[in-house]
Design a protein around this nucleic acid. Structure first.
Lengths: 340, 340
DNA sequence: GTGAAAGCGCTAACAG
DNA sequence: CTGTTAGCGCTTTCAC
């Protein structure tokens, strides 16, 4: 491996001079600068980030932890975060927790051990608290995306899930639906709680009764065992004319189950959900969704983080950005002429 | 920051002993091991990867470079690669080149500078050659995914694009189509070349003539300026009854343009493409596609890479894995009763 | 079983 | 403008 000492020797200067040329720091005569640069090229020198970070105590490295890399919501978040990071000369690395606390813990370890300058985290849920406390304890600045975690104060970028829930109910009611069920993610995830609350408020605003049996708690992640959801669908009575899913994955699974029961969407049941299906579903937007500004989650989250890193300010007051949502009608919801 | 020296001092041993406890190397009495472990916990010690990698000259770090993080094909590749890497105790970091050579070059620099143990690359195209040569020059093992690059010999995992192209033409012909156009990615990308060849062979097999004007060369990436494609669509004569797109992004753009011209898919024109649209489009598979085993691209690619790293064998013979494709019919292709 | 010394590649601080 | 010294946190080598 070529080091600055190899360069120094060949260019007949000291290692320090080489370092100065690389970092464009300090005053150096144009002549030696050119000579050093030439030797660096000749020897195909590549600086060693680790050695540099070790002495500088900073890595210029940001991490983004998401819970599902195949989910178009998160990949769009990733792109936003990456754009913001690049603009500030930071590198961004991704980790994928799969809604799994132990994978998340692994990534937090990796992040801690690699001394990242900051982290953007979409936490798996409230139980992510110990991981975040660990980051705080080790003074690694972080920003939460999409989900907040009770017990930890920090910058956070959220979607207006509450408003989204109300909008979805309003929309369904305006089309004649009155029996509206809700399959949600785990109540250990803040966005699930807010979405449920929006749903409840929507019902109330429209003078609709809340039925316990109309609500089901599942998981936001890709789970394989759908027995519980299947059982729930069998048990709902009267069967709803519309179902709201807590996110895009749940919508997918719900639709599969409904079709498995021989039901058609939307002629038998209408289905809609939170989160859109990404650019690759735009040609034929089947699902009625509450779209979120995914790119902005990443971009603005990264900006908050970079701001703190630059100012070396890791304390209150914390920012809380709440991004608006937008209802995008698709073909998965139909008008209900008369309620059964 | 807590270092092994802090631990050593408090546990009344030398730093070396602490190091041995951490790495479970060398013989250590159970008593001191326990004491050291206890102190490490008390002091919330986190090992410093950089310092360790600096002396060990290995990072346990793999990179995956993809060309479009929002493309479901690549995110599924990523998941496969991650699973394989984790199984072997390697960390996997992602980079996103956006089909952009200069972003790709930046990532290669970063990878080189951070001394990754290996890289999985979906290259932007043939012009990625210098980047790959750089990796080779610095003895960083790498495996190419999805695309090969003339001029560089290495392990590679490809899809059977040729076969896919023939299958697509066969399928269209079986439905009565004879005027089949092809919007392809850049001919500087190997998969585009193979797909074109499959298309040509498909035509030949079915006794269909090749018309120069039926082929268009665009880009696989999300490009904003669709003027060329628009012009091409205006110029084709006779207008095709079916269009094959070189990948999912091109299919998306083609459909937008066709609809912009007031045409309906599939009643006016049938459209199909290479690459599927990911799990989030499965509920309602609009597009007829040549699906690829995306997960296997990542998984098997990572395995090839890990194999080489473990054996410290970075020379010939190189492996070339060609994964089969599968035609998945959707609603975007219709039967053609009589050809105009 | 345990420790001391040296060095991985780099840069901050100080000299000159 | 340029060089010397010391040290970032860790592990290898060789003693004891």
């Amino acid at each position: 491996m070529v080091t600055i000492y190899d360069i120094a020797e060949k260019a007949k200067v000291s290692a320090m001079t080489v370092s100065r040329v690389i970092n464009e720091s300090g005053r150096i005569s144009e002549k030696t600068r050119q000579r050093v640069k030439k030797v660096m090229e000749e020897m195909h020198y590549i600086p060693n980030h680790m050695a540099r970070s070790l002495v500088l105590q900073q890595t210029n490295l940001l991490y983004l932890l998401i819970t599902d890399i195949t989910n178009p919501f998160y990949t769009t978040v990733a792109r936003g975060a990456e754009d913001a990071a690049r603009k500030s000369g930071f590198r961004l690395l991704f980790g994928n927790s799969d809604e799994n606390l132990s994978k998340e813990a692994d990534y937090i370890d990796t992040i801690l051990a690699s001394r990242a300058d900051g982290v953007l985290v979409a936490p798996a849920g409230d139980a992510s608290l110990p991981h975040l406390s660990l980051l705080r304890q080790h003074k690694v600045p972080f920003v939460l995306l999409d989900r907040e975690v009770p017990g930890i104060d920090c910058d956070v970028v959220l979607g207006d899930s509450n408003e989204g829930g109300r909008a979805l109910v309003d929309y369904l009611v305006s089309l004649g639906h009155q029996n509206i069920a809700f399959v949600n993610g785990s109540s250990t995830v803040s966005s699930a709680r807010h979405r449920l609350q929006g749903y409840l408020e929507g019902l109330k605003q429209n003078g609709l009764p809340f039925r316990e049996s109309y609500c089901m708690e599942a998981s936001f992640g890709m789970i394989n065992d759908l027995t519980d959801m299947e059982a729930w669908l069998s048990s709902i009575d009267p069967f709803p004319s519309a179902i709201i899913a807590g996110n895009n994955v749940l919508a997918l699974e719900t639709i599969r189950l409904l079709r498995g029961r021989g039901l058609s969407i939307p002629s038998d049941v209408s289905v809609c959900c939170f989160d859109d299906f990404g650019p690759f579903s735009e040609i034929d937007p089947f699902m009625t969704v509450i779209a979120q500004q995914a790119y902005e989650f990443g971009y603005q989250g990264a900006q908050l983080l970079l701001e703190r890193i630059k100012n070396r300010d890791f304390s209150e007051p914390w920012s809380k950005i709440v991004l608006p949502t937008e209802l995008k009608p698709g073909r998965s919801v139909a008008e209900r002429v008369h309620e059964s």
